[in-house]
């Protein structure tokens, strides 16, 4: 039984330098014989120490590509990454592959959606955790082992001494995700990027993992970038939420502001379309029509315009800019829309 208390160390963070500054990040996929595809364009956001920033959107909105680009994990061939991702004064995007390898796992770590395919199936769990510490902290295997046991215990894996010797297939999905989190935490990184960490898990297991992540962020002042499509997960976990659509940020706000008064018709539509466990039953859902296949190109339109109930003529002719709007106490609200939902709605 864990009662949830969520306030992350907010008072402490406002005065500090951002840990990560992403500026104008763009990723373009080029394939021979096909039009270049702008997976992410002009994405900028800051992450403060101890803050949890959410990147929310549906498949193909560029949320995962953003994280892979920051981590330098996109294949070099056929992909162009521009912009900056300044982590404590160093632009991660300008580092050589070797320098980036040294950073990954030590300063910035990542948790993926599918724990089974992110773990090496033929190496015991313990060895995979100690390996990270050996590589980045120069520990010997002997020194690393008790630390690994400690870590497994910390992420809630029962009987850690025994689990150290087991292989990924011997663990359940939830335990594997815990093991992966233990690996990510092995070198006490200052930034953790979690890409749909609970999507492959059941709700009861998801609740375990989310509680674990929440506690970790709180206890260690680690910053967390949470990438998810699940608005429910965002609502309970993130301080600041960025909503992505078609590779661009369309709305940013503090979670309370965002859920109470969504201004972008896409955010509004998403919230109106999901059935909620705590709302009155029998209300008809208001779906967002169409699918991402109906998008317009951003160059001279709003990509969401064809699916938008609020669309006006300008939405099909000019691209809206991401602009600061009224409201937002701590986090400034940003919005990319010609005809936003009015605040009273």
């Amino acid at each position: 039984m864990t009662a949830t208390t969520t306030r992350t160390s907010r008072d402490a963070r406002t005065s500090r330098e951002p840990l990560l500054q992403v500026r104008d990040l763009s990723v373009t996929f080029r394939r021979s014989g096909e039009e270049p595809f702008h997976a992410v364009s002009g994405v900028s956001f800051d992450v403060q120490p101890g803050q949890t920033v959410g990147l929310v959107g549906e498949s193909g909105c560029g949320k995962s590509v953003t994280s892979l680009a920051i981590m330098g994990l996109l294949p070099k061939r056929g992909n162009t990454v521009t912009g900056e991702a300044v982590f404590e004064g160093t632009d991660l995007l300008k580092l050589s592959p070797k320098q980036m390898r040294d950073r990954r796992g030590r300063d910035v770590a990542m948790i993926f959606q599918d724990p089974l395919s992110s773990l090496n199936p033929v190496v015991p769990i313990g060895r995979q955790v100690t390996e990270v510490m050996e590589r980045h902290q120069g520990l010997s295997r002997k020194e690393a082992e008790p630390k690994a046991r400690e870590l497994l215990d910390k992420v809630g894996i029962p009987d850690p001494s025994r689990r150290l010797k087991e292989y990924p297939h011997q663990l359940s999905g939830g335990m594997r995700q815990r093991a992966l989190i233990a690996m990510a935490l092995a070198c006490a990184p200052r930034l953790l990027i979690a890409d749909e960490p609970t999507t492959a898990l059941d709700v009861t297991i998801q609740a375990q993992i989310l509680t674990l992540l929440k506690d970790l962020v709180q206890d260690s002042d680690t910053a967390l970038i949470m990438i998810t499509h699940d608005l429910g997960v965002v609502a309970g976990l993130c301080d600041e939420v960025n909503v992505l659509y078609g590779g661009r940020i369309v709305e940013r706000a503090d979670r309370h502001d965002l859920f109470a008064r969504p201004r972008h018709p896409y955010t509004h539509g998403l919230l109106a379309s999901i059935p909620r466990l705590d709302s009155a039953r029998g209300e008809r859902l208001n779906p967002v029509p169409g699918s991402v296949a109906d998008n317009l190109p951003w160059d001279h339109a709003c990509a969401f315009a064809p699916r938008c109930s609020n669309a006006v003529e300008a939405c099909r002719t000019t691209q809206p800019e991401l602009e600061r709007i009224e409201g937002g106490v701590e986090t400034p609200r940003l919005l990319r829309c010609h005809n936003p939902i009015s605040e009273e709605a």
Partner: peptide, 18 residues
């Protein structure tokens, strides 16, 4: 355990973590 898209509810909720 089901997350609800409402921060206020989420902050107040008592969770039974299995």
């Amino acid at each position: 355990a089901v997350p609800v898209p409402d921060p206020t509810t989420e902050d107040r909720r008592e969770r039974i973590i299995l």
